[in-house]
Measured scan of single mutants.
Amino acid sequence: MKVIFLQDVKGKGKKGEIKNVPDGYARNFLFKKGLAVEATPANLKELE
């Protein structure tokens, strides 16, 4: 799953980066803790 990092995550990505991460990791950790959002067209547009 492609995500946009909202904060630096040690060993995974830095704020503003767009990266592919495993689905479970994204849903169960990154999204729940507010560290990233899914890289949807709407979210990508907001990032610009």
Rank of each mutant, 00 (worst) to 15 (best):
K15R: 12
F29Y: 15
N28V: 07
A42S: 12
N20Q: 13
P41M: 12
V21P: 00
D8Q: 05
N28Q: 10
D8N: 11
L30H: 00
K14S: 09
G13H: 10
F29H: 10
L44W: 07
N28L: 12
G11S: 06
K33Y: 15
L30Q: 01
I4E: 02
A36I: 06
A36P: 01
K2L: 15
E17M: 07
P22A: 10
K19Q: 07
L47A: 09
K15H: 05
F29G: 03
G34K: 11
K12A: 15
V3G: 00
E46M: 14
V9F: 04
L35G: 00
A26I: 07
N28E: 12
N20W: 15
E48L: 15
E17W: 04
L30S: 01
G13I: 04
L47E: 07
G16K: 02
A42F: 09
F29I: 11
L6S: 03
G24H: 14
K2V: 14
G13D: 01
I18G: 01
K32D: 06
E48V: 14
K32P: 15
F29V: 12
A42L: 11
M1F: 07
K32N: 07
G34W: 06
R27V: 11
V9N: 00
K12P: 01
L47R: 08
Y25I: 06
K15I: 08
M1D: 02
A36S: 02
K19W: 08
A39W: 12
M1E: 02
N28A: 10
L44Y: 06
D23E: 15
I4H: 02
A26Q: 05
E38R: 10
G34N: 09
N43E: 07
A36W: 01
G13V: 05
D23V: 15
E48G: 13
K14I: 09
R27S: 04
K19A: 10
G13E: 01
F5V: 00
A39P: 03
R27T: 09
G24T: 14
D23K: 14
L35V: 04
K15A: 10
I18E: 03
L6P: 00
M1W: 06
G11E: 05
I4T: 02
E48K: 09
N20V: 15
F29S: 04
F5M: 04
F31H: 01
P41H: 10
E46D: 13
N28H: 12
R27I: 13
K2G: 05
G24W: 15
F31D: 02
N20Y: 15
E48M: 14
Y25M: 06
E17D: 13
E48A: 14
K45H: 11
K2W: 15
A42M: 09
L35Y: 12
N20D: 13
A39Q: 03
L30W: 03
I4G: 01
K45T: 09
V37P: 02
A36E: 01
A26G: 04
K2H: 09
T40F: 06
K33R: 14
L35N: 01
L44G: 05
F5H: 00
L44F: 06
P41D: 13
F29A: 05
K12L: 15
Q7D: 07
K10E: 14
D8T: 11
N43T: 11
A26V: 07
E46R: 14
M1N: 03
L35F: 10
E48H: 14
K32M: 12
L44P: 04
K45Y: 11
P22T: 09
I18Q: 04
K2T: 14
G34R: 10
F31A: 02
L35W: 13
N43P: 04
V21W: 03
I18S: 03
F5W: 02
K33A: 11
V9M: 04
G24N: 13
F29M: 07
F31L: 13
G13N: 02
R27A: 06
L6K: 06
V9R: 01
D8I: 03
E46Y: 15
N43M: 11
F31R: 01
